[in-house]
């Protein structure tokens, strides 16, 4: 043993040295690093969970968005339908009004036409009467008295009316 260089003092110092080294390395190397690794694992776990949550939230938001979009689309559809309906109703109203107005105008025009015809007839009567008188006076060449004159006029008008 002695020839191999084994010495109790050195042996004990090596054992103490190893113990001290193990303690120091535990304190300065293994402990901090293993803690950090655990911490890192925890954080990664957490961030993965967070990402999962965010993903879920995103999905939910998208679902919400989709739902809102669908609703909006439905609303727009209904609005358009209403508008179309209203437009149709208005159109009918307008058409009816126009038709009514046309009818009224037609009626008015007919009435005015009738009046004008009456007027024309009346004018024509007096004109004809005048003309007949003049013609008669020419024909008769005599001055009839106005009484006979008037009587003659009326007779001829009546005749005319009958002929007419």
């Amino acid at each position: 043993m002695e020839n191999l260089g084994i010495n109790v003092q050195l042996l004990i110092s090596q054992i103490i040295n190893f113990g001290l080294l193990a303690f120091l390395l535990y304190k300065f190397l293994y402990n901090p690093i293993l803690n950090a690794l655990n911490e890192r694992t925890r954080r990664i776990q957490e961030s993965i969970e967070n990402a999962e949550q965010v993903k879920q939230q995103l999905q939910r938001a998208r679902q919400d968005y989709d739902a809102q979009l669908a609703e909006a689309r439905r609303e727009a559809q209904s609005i358009i339908a209403q508008a179309t309906e209203r437009a149709k109703a208005q159109e009918q109203e307008l058409v009816a009004e126009a038709r009514e107005r046309v009818a009224r105008m037609e009626a008015e025009a007919r009435e005015r036409l009738e009046q004008e015809r009456q007027q024309l007839l009346r004018n024509l009567q007096s004109e004809i009467a005048d003309l007949v008188t003049r013609t008669a006076s020419v024909v008769v060449r005599q001055q009839l008295d106005p009484k006979v004159h008037q009587k003659l006029i009326e007779e001829s008008i009546q005749q005319l009316g009958r002929m007419n």
Binding site: I6, L10, L11, S13, Q14, I15, N17, F18, G19
Partner: peptide, 15 residues
């Protein structure tokens, strides 16, 4: 090298 010293290797072996 401490590994070429029987004191160190024996100490480690004992530990």
């Amino acid at each position: 090298s401490p590994s070429a010293d029987l004191n160190m290797t024996l100490a480690l072996a004992l530990i």
